[in-house]
Amino acid sequence: MPNSPDQSPLGQRAPCPEAYSPELLYPIPRAPKRQDIGIGGQPPFFGADLWTAYELSWLTPRGKPVVALAHITVPCETPNIVESKSFKLYVNSFSGSRFASADEVLARLRADIAEAAWRGGGASGSVGVRLTAADAFDQQQVHELDGVLLDRLDIECTHYTPEPSLLTAAFDEQPVEEVLTSNLLKSNCLVTGQPDWGSVQIRYAGPQIDQGGLLRYLVSYRQHEEFHEQCVERIFMDIRRQCRPTRLAVYARYTRRGGLDINPFRTSHPLALPPNVRTARQ
């Protein structure tokens, strides 16, 4: 039986692992939630989930601790997401084990996460992993999402669960190409009910989307319970159906929990992944 969210480590007492434990990774199939939003086969998007792990540490062969940041790219084609608490426990399991080098840590991260993300899908694949050593920490950037900020609008908000009917577009006018952003995305964890705070960027070409309606729609996620990846795919599909853009990309950056941030990106057309650069709130 496929793993389900309520069987995951979320919301359960879990001691910090004392030794490297790849079996802690808990994959959850993407398919059921995609079916909920009308995706029964091949998704109408490309993209990836960009993770940053801030709590990575391990021991040298002589027992001295090392710290680093890990940047992970999980393609959205993988059959599974990796549940975030299991990811945290897995990353922390490195802290009590000795490794010959950072390259060995990198190789194990890449192999373990790929196995979990692609498990049960009938095909194997890879994930991207990059480490930032401590001597490069001061090169890490902070940058807000580029685009026109919707939050400037003085609107009335009355919906706090996703309401696609709030999305409208000017189908009888000339098409436009624009990038819109908001810092008001907030949803709740599917299992624990704890808040997930995020910023979102919507890049599209086609009939001009009504900005007030789009902001109301984004605010309507405020009491919604889904994982980050699922929220972004729901936003993508609702905009695609309601506003019929010729091109569409949705990118969200969520604030970190448990030393991890998760930043899903979905695009209707081949497009380079955005750089994994944190925002001020991350």
Rank of each mutant, 00 (worst) to 15 (best):
E83S: 01
K85M: 10
K85I: 08
V91E: 00
N92A: 03
N92Y: 00
S93K: 07
F99G: 02
S101H: 07
S101K: 03
D103F: 03
E104F: 04
E104Q: 15
V105R: 08
V105Y: 07
L106N: 03
A107K: 15
R108L: 14
R108Q: 13
L109W: 09
L109E: 05
L109H: 11
R110A: 12
A111L: 12
E115M: 04
W118N: 02
W118S: 04
G120I: 08
G121R: 09
A123P: 00
A123W: 00
G125T: 11
G125A: 06
V127L: 06
V127M: 02
V129K: 09
T132R: 05
A133E: 08
A133K: 08
A134H: 11
D135S: 13
F137A: 07
D138M: 09
Q140N: 04
E144F: 03
E144H: 09
L145Y: 06
D146H: 10
L150G: 01
R152Q: 14
L153W: 03
L153G: 06
D154Y: 00
I155H: 12
T158F: 08
T158D: 10
Y160L: 08
Y160M: 06
T161A: 09
P162D: 03
P164T: 10
P164I: 10
S165F: 01
S165L: 05
L166Q: 12
L167M: 09
T168I: 07
T168C: 12
A169L: 11
A169C: 09
A170R: 14
F171I: 08
D172P: 00
P175G: 08
V176A: 12
E177R: 15
E178I: 08
V179G: 05
V179N: 01
